[in-house]
């Protein structure tokens, strides 16, 4: 029953929250995570390109959502992850979960975004304001963030 979408289309966070509220029945809480391309300070960028593995990426997300549903009493969930080139300020990812109470929704959202960063095949390439594009290196801190949910 979760809604999962991976692709280049942008999304309207407010419309997605309203859609989830309609799907989720008697939910008392919807938690949201919205990821945005930031310019950065040391080496400012103008855009980011996200590549994925069609098929495997969607299945990996579906598995994470199933895991979240088994850990918390969720009444609905929407995960949207964009691909392709996204300019600074553009939306990358939206995770929404609905539950009867806030704790479950907040924790499940945190779990899902931590796992998305390390468990679903996406690769980011940064396009600096000056110079060649560069692939982002994986961060040990992201593995640690996902690891705390074991």
């Amino acid at each position: 029953m979760a809604f999962i979408r991976v692709g280049p289309e942008d999304f309207d966070p407010a419309a997605e929250v309203v859609a989830l509220q309609a799907e989720a029945g008697d939910a008392g809480a919807i938690a949201t995570f919205l990821g945005i391309v930031r310019r950065g300070q040391d080496k400012p960028i103008e855009a980011m390109t996200l590549e994925h593995y069609p098929g495997m990426t969607e299945r990996a997300i579906a598995r994470m959502v199933a895991e979240a549903e088994s850990r918390w009493p969720l009444s609905g969930c929407r995960v949207i992850h964009r691909t392709g080139r996204i300019p600074v300020g553009g939306r990358i990812v939206l995770v929404l979960t609905a539950s009867r109470h806030r704790q479950a929704a907040l924790e499940a959202t945190s779990f899902l975004i931590d796992w998305l960063k390390v468990g679903a095949p996406f690769w980011k390439k940064e396009h600096p304001e000056a110079g060649e594009g560069r692939w982002v290196e994986a961060r040990p801190a992201d593995d640690a963030a996902a690891g705390r949910w074991h």
């Binding site: 990821g35 996200l50 495997m56 992850h81 990358i92 998305l116 960063k117 390390v118 690769w123 692939w135």
Partner: peptide, 24 residues
């Protein structure tokens, strides 16, 4: 499905190589 270097291959397999994930 994620696999290790030691995993066995079979005829018809789809094998993908990629860097560590940087999603989200």
């Amino acid at each position: 499905e994620f696999a290790t270097l030691g995993a066995a291959l079979a005829h018809g397999d789809e094998v993908a190589f990629f860097p560590p994930i940087t999603g989200g």
